[in-house]
Design a protein around this nucleic acid. Structure first.
Length: 925
RNA sequence: GCCUGGAUGGUGGAAUGGUAGACACGAGGGACUUAAAAUCCCUUGGCCAUAACGGCUGUGUGGGUUCAAGUCCCACUCCAGGUACCA
């Protein structure tokens, strides 16, 4: 019998299913290992060959660890809430749950064919009430918590209330939106509603009035990571800034820990760097600038360049800043209003594209607290309300944005660094020697920038005009979505309109049915259509939670997926602890991977989980790109010209389905059938063939370059697909799919198969002892594959298998003592054929439990070794010496070898001889 | 602009500072076959050379360190990804 994947793969998949091979339970007697993939959003398009890349890599590692004796948790589930299903529902009226379930069924079918070792008994779906009960539960816990900045952890809000009752805000250390100051007596005098308003500023899940990214096309707000360059990541619709009251998570309170703890986890440097940038720590100072002629108020600004205080020639406020109304004079009111109006009507995108300098004078001046100089206050949209204090001191000589503004409004530019030429552009670098920067209060002249920053900060604190401050760019996460297909908030509104939590016993609060998935006529979210969407007669929250809500703690649920009494039991969490290896795309760097770490830290603060970080080691798999094919239509005709001849014509390139192209040769008949408009197509051929153009692009339906794994598996088998995806290149790299390459992997399997089958096709291995050469190949392979798998270097592992086979096939080595360990090593890579051969070798059970072989160094040692001899670094000839030869003996052998005379003239002694045992000899003449 | 990676044959890619190009694809040649497919064998960075041996050159560019550099250092060019009026 010849190797035929169709005979093998389905049979073993069924066997594994029936035997429960991949079912895993907690087992204290064995060490655990948790291997996790980022669970997919089940889209209607199904999987393409790019999706399983990471899954295959993690599956290999999970299987490898299992063979090494670990109790491996390797689950899979679905991130089932999401916009596409809802958009589809709006168009068709089809309930998103129905399409989602269909898509999941399709995904499962496709995943099963690839032969993964997932424990499907632990599957989770974020849209399952038994699952989202715990998403809602975590939200309630965040609602009932505040962040204690002294203890650096979340604590019950009841403790804060107790503090307010006894001491007011005195001695309070809590992260808050707005700063409050009151005494215990004042707290006691507050009404219930007033108190709740105050507490809302402290809760970790809070309702806040903030500037949000509003996407009119999607009819919902979006988080910062869901917006890129002013467009929604999903759909690419314009996004505008809007002040709205929304649910938020106080992620910012965790900024320091999210930053610092990056040093404790094994993630790629680039991903850590992305997170560091996103968190955006900057050290600086807050400073008060008095208003000229007023003593009732001053401006608080944030700067990282305190040293440039002598160069401040004006101030700028963000248009949304609270200071604007404070400083606008009657004379300027009209101009300011006009400007604010103009800014308000610009979308984020327009603000970014239109980088023209704009702004307006407020009418008021401020006083530089160090120089006493009076400087004008402007309002401009280049200052952001959400960062720092929404107000800046402008130093045009040393900040390019201030410089552009100063030039536009003809404001003075005072250079502060020796030799800095600011006639054409600002000098932004934080280096040089200070000048123009001394007076009787503060002397900076002659200091370096670094020293000047330190001295100024010191002065600011001493003089009481400000304080040293660390600012983070990381903002609180906006947690409301005006959509249907998400987790409902376990919140209702009381008679005073104050949000109130449902009791934990009411969970899960199920997503209600609605007649349509659109906003109501009055503009309320779709849940406004649900009948009886009330609790005790009071209205329930109409928004739903965003996509990242359900994906933030799913890795915990896998540990204990059927527990109805807890998100995860103490025992299960103590056993599985954290994810040891997490595999997924780097596109989640600023979204899921921040939220998940935040969510985990919050639960850690309450002892719900025992690990401070959710994912110990993280590997980012690259993308598999599509290789697109083009045909070239001569403009205005239905004639298509082959790629090599197109320069003679005026043509438009058109994407053509890769499935009707063999390599680059177009199947012209299939092309005519592909689209009705091409039925009468004519072709200009070269060498009798129509050759297509190519391009490497994202794998996408619209480029017709999607390769479906089902087709690949049908033709070559899952084992070949698995092997090939790993062989393509390093797991982290993006690389194009190349159809022809898979043959090489298929051939490898066939050759191995042929090696242990006789001419009649019967399984045949011999019980002879392997020769030294065969042992060397085998043990070299074990050593190499083990090291490579540990290092996630799967492409070189696969190459090592192929190289070993290239040696063994000519030797006709079908010896059991060699074949059996190779089959064992191959089990993680090609589980189906490995299982088949494992059973043919007479084993019971499953190859998944075959112990991972260890290599024996003795077989790799040699009696004699060949060493290269170089002269002045240029390799010249080889010598053979005893493996344990001394330096002197090797040197002798090198100098007296046959070829030596040619490179070393008679009688001349070498200047120097470098011997690297086992490597080479270099002789300098 | 900033941050992070890269740049090696026709292609994807290998190389703890130690004889660059493992492995695979593609290409060329051959065997088997009526033929094709499949399979097997040989060649395959470039240049020069030969009956044969062989020699030179070669990892984006220019320098440097070293007995020895794809690998380390400095400067530059280009490419990819991320990110941004963040003061």
């Amino acid at each position: 019998m010849e190797y035929n994947h169709r005979d093998i793969e389905g049979r073993w998949q069924q066997y594994w299913r029936e035997q429960g091979t991949y079912h895993v339970t907690e087992d204290a007697s064995r060490p655990k290992f948790y291997v996790l993939d980022m669970f997919p959003y089940p889209s209607g398009a199904g999987l393409h060959v790019g999706h399983p890349l990471g899954y295959i890599a993690s599956d290999i590692y999970a299987r490898y660890k299992r063979q090494c004796g670990y109790n491996v948790l390797h689950p899979m589930g679905y991130d089932a809430y999401g916009l596409p299903a809802e958009q589809y529902a709006i168009q068709t009226g089809q309930h998103p749950e129905v399409t989602t379930n269909e898509n999941i069924a399709h995904y499962r079918e496709q995943l099963d064919k690839i032969g993964f070792s997932f424990d499907w008994d632990r599957e989770v779906r974020t849209c399952d009430p038994a699952y989202y009960k715990w998403t809602q539960w975590a939200f309630l816990k965040m609602f009932a918590s505040y962040y204690d900045t002294a203890a650096d952890k979340a604590r019950p809000i009841a403790e804060l209330v107790k503090h307010f009752e006894t001491r007011g805000t005195e001695g309070v250390s809590a992260a808050s939106g707005e700063e409050h100051t009151f005494t215990a007596a004042e707290w006691a005098a507050m009404s219930r509603v007033e108190r709740e308003r105050v507490l809302m500023d402290y809760r970790i899940a809070y309702r806040g009035n903030t500037m949000v990214n509003w996407c009119p096309a999607l009819g919902t707000v979006l988080a910062n990571d869901e917006v890129s360059e002013g467009l929604s990541v999903r759909g690419g619709h314009p996004v505008e800034q809007k002040m709205m009251s929304q649910w938020c998570l106080r992620v910012s309170a965790y900024a320091k820990r999210l930053l610092d703890d990056l040093d404790t986890i094994e993630w790629s440097e680039s991903l850590k760097e992305t997170q560091r940038n996103w968190i955006g720590r900057s050290e600086g100072a807050e400073m008060h600038f008095p208003l000229a002629g007023r003593s009732d108020a001053d401006l608080l600004i944030f700067t990282t360049r305190a040293d440039t205080i002598f160069g401040v020639t004006f101030m700028v406020l963000a248009p949304e800043s609270d200071y604007v109304s404070l400083v606008t004079t009657d004379g300027q009111r009209e101009a300011v209003e006009a400007y604010l109006d103009e800014v308000r009507h610009k979308t984020e995108r327009e603000r970014m594209i239109d980088k023209k300098v704009s702004g307006v004078y407020s009418g008021s001046n401020a006083v530089n607290p160090v120089t006493g100089e009076e400087i004008p206050i402007f309002i401009s949209d280049y200052v952001l309300a959400g960062y720092g204090t929404g107000a800046i001191m402008a130093v045009p000589a040393h900040d390019s944005r201030d410089y552009a503004f100063a030039r536009h409004f003809s404001l003075p530019i005072v250079p502060l660094i020796e030799g800095a030429d600011v006639s054409e552009e600002s000098f932004d670098a934080k280096e040089g020697i200070m000048t123009n920067s001394s007076n009787e209060r503060l002397q900076l002249n002659g200091l370096t920038v670094k020293q000047a920053i330190a001295r100024t900060k010191e002065y600011i604190e001493k003089a009481g005009i400000g304080r040293v401050k660390v600012n983070y760019r990381l903002r609180d996460a906006i947690f409301s979505r005006q959509r249907y297909w998400g987790e409902p908030f376990p919140i209702y509104y009381d008679a005073d309109g104050m949000p109130q939590p449902l009791d934990e016993s009411e969970l899960p609060l199920r997503l209600p049915e609605v007649d349509k998935f659109l906003p109501t006529e009055s503009g309320e979210p779709p849940l406004g259509r649900a009948a009886n969407w009330t609790y005790g007669g009071q209205p329930l929250e109409l928004c739903t939670m965003p996509g990242f809500a359900g994906s933030s703690a799913y890795y915990l649920r896998y540990m204990d997926p059927h527990n109805d009494g807890a998100l995860v039991s103490r025992e299960a969490n103590d056993y599985w602890r954290q994810v040891d290896l997490y595999v997924g795309g780097s596109e989640h760097a600023t979204g899921h991977l921040i939220y998940s770490r935040f969510w985990n830290k919050f639960l850690f603060d309450y002892g719900v989980v025992c690990c401070n970080e959710p994912f110990r080691k993280l590997v980012n798999q690259g993308m598999i790109q599509g290789s697109s094919r083009f045909v070239y239509r001569v403009v205005g005709t239905n004639t298509f010209v082959s790629a090599g001849l197109r320069k003679d014509y005026e043509t438009t390139p058109i994407h053509v389905d890769v499935n009707i192209v063999d390599g680059v040769t177009l199947d012209t008949e299939a092309f005519k059938r592909w689209r009705p408009e091409y039925a009468t197509a004519e072709f200009v051929l070269e060498d009798g063939r129509y050759l297509c153009g190519t391009a490497i692009e994202k794998m996408s339906k619209s480029y017709f370059n999607v390769v479906n794994p089902d087709n690949v598996i049908e033709k070559w088998g899952a084992d070949s697909l698995r092997l090939f995806e790993m062989f393509l290149g390093p797991i982290e790299a993006s690389k194009p799919w190349d159809d022809t390459g898979i043959q090489g992997c298929n051939r490898f399997i066939k050759r191995l198969w042929a090696l242990c089958h006789d001419k009649e096709g019967n399984f045949a291995v011999s019980d002879e002892d392997p020769t030294a050469a065969e042992q060397k190949v085998l043990h070299g392979l074990i050593k190499k594959v083990t090291a490579d798998v540990e290092a996630f270097s799967y492409n070189t592992s696969v190459a090592a298998f192929m190289e070993a086979l290239n040696t063994l096939v000519p030797l006709k080595c079908n010896k059991r003592a060699v074949i059996e360990p190779i089959v064992t090593l191959l089990a993680p890579f090609t589980p189906h054929v490995a299982e088949e051969l494992w059973h043919a070798l007479g084993h019971e059970g499953t190859v998944c439990d075959a112990p991972w072989p260890e290599h024996d160094e003795r077989y790799l040692k040699e009696d004699t070794i060949r060493m290269g001899v170089s002269f002045n670094g240029k390799p010249r000839y080889n010598i053979e010496v005893a493996a344990d030869a001394s330096h002197e003996a090797i040197e002798q052998a090198a100098l007296t070898a046959d070829g030596a005379a040619k490179w070393l003239p008679a009688g001349q002694a070498p200047k120097k001889v470098i011997v690297v045992p086992g490597k080479l000899v270099n002789i300098v003449v």
